[in-house]
Nucleic acid binder design. Structure first.
Lengths: 210, 210
DNA sequence: GTCTATAAAGAGATAGAC
DNA sequence: GTCTATCTCTTTATAGAC
């Protein structure tokens, strides 16, 4: 029930196809390092044809960033919508975050790392939504602290930063055909963030069901 | 003894000044998003003057990447050179990594994120050294597992990936004048990686001396 | 909706004076 | 070691035919 796979490719509009291809190129070569010619050629088009679908290169970056934010916001809403205990909610949120981000890798990574290339207005809108998402994570952590599930000697803010650090850098090395599945990584990160790496915290480590 | 501050700025050669300025611009705007004109103007030069010091733009990226790798390799050597227990060595390595990376932020971040812009030969050399560094971290983790300090239900490789995830993403939000010092973050990450975030692993959490 | 052709600007890099 | 001037190539984007 965590799996948010990409929508069936057949349903993609031409514009969505362009956004997806742009995301792949931007993530591989950087926004400024990708040319409209490369994008056109990746879609078997001439570059002038792209301008029938979008007005400027910047628009591509802005819209694919919005796409990825909307996807992860929706996934977080589902994860937090249930009846679970605070610490279990955090676990569900971590898993939703990792699985969603990695199933939408190029867009998500580009959104996270290429904000500098947006116009001021675009960047402000993206930042506003990113901040809202960060607050969601931080509040979930805060709830888990108040319920006695998480340590309170570190602020919710610092715990949120450390957690998202661990989750987000995965985009730099994750490969869908690699040694670890997104679900496996999600469970590992949740366990490490909560239980830590020490052998003292549970020896053989029977695990938490999942 | 962990502090590896930047060398006194007065000692920088013109070439090193250019590398440092290039690193700041590359990290702010991306490698492809930075022009030689911008770099020249940041140094109060005309762009032709830069070519007296370097042959090509690519060289800047390669050399600043090497600089940052050499710095962090040296810091790791110092951290691991002592007599400490395996788990304590890991703690020292984590602190050296974070403090060194954050004191050399633009170069380190550019090295980590702009490898794609290097030529094949340059990229292979940088990758070789990054892999060697990763092995150093992984072996330190492995030693701590064998000494009974770290859990063994996760592979040393997976633990290394999760740890470096948590440490490396810090470059995206760290501000030298922000709420947290590099040393504070280093200690926090070490504690979180080893002890975890759970309130169950030590309640009030007296802390581990540092 | 895609094409050919082209405009206008800016890129990396070099020549040669001082 | 820095400058002015310039070459050559590529960039984003538009015009207008099909």
């Amino acid at each position: 029930m965590l799996s948010q796979d990409t929508p069936a490719p057949e349903v993609l509009s031409r514009r969505d196809e362009i956004l997806a291809t742009a995301a792949d190129l931007f993530w591989a070569n950087g926004y400024a390092g990708t040319t409209m010619s490369q994008l056109a050629s990746s879609m078997n088009l001439r570059k002038a044809s792209l301008y029938h679908h979008i007005d400027k290169k910047e628009t591509l970056l802005y819209e694919l960033s919005l796409d990825s934010l909307q996807r992860i916001e929706a996934a977080a809403e589902v994860a937090l919508g249930g009846e679970a205990e605070p610490l279990e909610k955090l676990r569900l949120l971590i898993e939703a975050h990792v699985v969603t981000a990695l199933s939408d890798r190029s867009k998500h990574a580009t959104m996270l790392t290429e904000m500098r290339a947006l116009t001021t207005e675009q960047r402000e809108e993206i930042l506003r939504r990113r901040d809202a998402y960060d607050s969601l994570v931080e509040n979930t952590i805060s709830d888990a602290q108040q319920s006695g599930g998480l340590r309170t000697d570190l602020s919710a803010r610092l715990l949120r930063l450390a957690l998202l650090n661990m989750l987000n850098w995965t985009i730099f090395w994750f490969r869908p055909d690699g040694s670890f599945s997104a679900e496996e990584l999600a469970r590992t990160f949740a366990s490490l963030f909560i239980d830590g790496g020490s052998a003292a915290n549970g020896a053989g480590r029977p695990g938490q069901s999942t």
